[in-house]
Design a protein around this nucleic acid. Structure first.
Lengths: 125, 125
DNA sequence: TCCTAAATAGTAATGATTATCATTATTATA
DNA sequence: TATAATAATGATAATCATTACTATTTAGGA
């Protein structure tokens, strides 16, 4: 993978950004510093960076991919009203702690990724 | 909400269906019994049924919404290789039990939904 | 039966993401 | 340092899941 000014810029924009921005939001921010950057370039690099585990994607009900620079394992809370995405770093008693902070949880979606038993067997052969 | 043959059919197709089908797959199945049913009708009813908590949506990396008739709280495991979606009904030691069954977990995405503290405060006013 | 609003079928529109491709930029090597 | 090979870009077109639109049909109560 070759170095590029644009990819550097995108990484710089998301690093430390806790707003879980969409590709478009990143594009808008990028144009402030690199006015000719293309939306396609933003998408392409976000995809590459996600494949390299430099960032993590979050598929939500708004049908836009949100990007998270924080690749450490943690969960998210999405407000049904304002749509804001909060990070959840604690592992134990998550819902209880959210309640203490005034967050009411009405539902959860947990998805695990990996290789299933069937495919694991095939790969051994 | 008025009764409709089409909505009944869609509910019948997903009830007990553990494959987490997409709208298109449901459409294909529906056409076998109702050849003139419209794709729009399928989408419209799936949306309504989800709003009525008759089914649950699952947003995945394939950019298609998957529908789950099982509205009881449970998680999912998506195989990176074959894309198959498995249900996870146990609450404790989930990853450990998956490993016992030959599933290797490489990552997880947990999203909680509800109302955040800020919006909750506004609603009280 | 008749009326009214909800639901449908068919189709067009939307919008996020991807693909394409000619051009530019990076980097290894002579 | 110049050059060659090719990865990356910018601009734009294409894709495709989902939604909107609209004329027509249908459910179900008066």
């Amino acid at each position: 993978m070759r170095h590029s000014r644009q990819r550097e810029l995108i990484l710089d924009i998301i690093t430390g950004n806790t707003t879980h921005p969409t590709a478009d939001a990143i594009y808008v921010a990028a144009r402030e510093r690199e006015p000719n950057i293309s939306l396609g370039t933003v998408y392409r690099n976000l995809k590459v960076l996600a494949e390299e585990d430099k960032l993590v994607t979050l598929e939500t009900q708004d049908k836009k991919i949100h990007y998270d620079y924080n690749v450490l394992p943690h969960g998210h809370f999405i407000c049904d009203r304002c749509g804001k995405i909060y990070d959840m770093f604690y592992e134990d008693g998550q819902i209880g702690k959210l309640a203490e902070r005034g967050f009411s949880v009405s539902g959860a979606k947990c998805v695990y990724y990996g290789v299933c038993a069937e495919c694991g067997k095939k790969e051994k052969n």
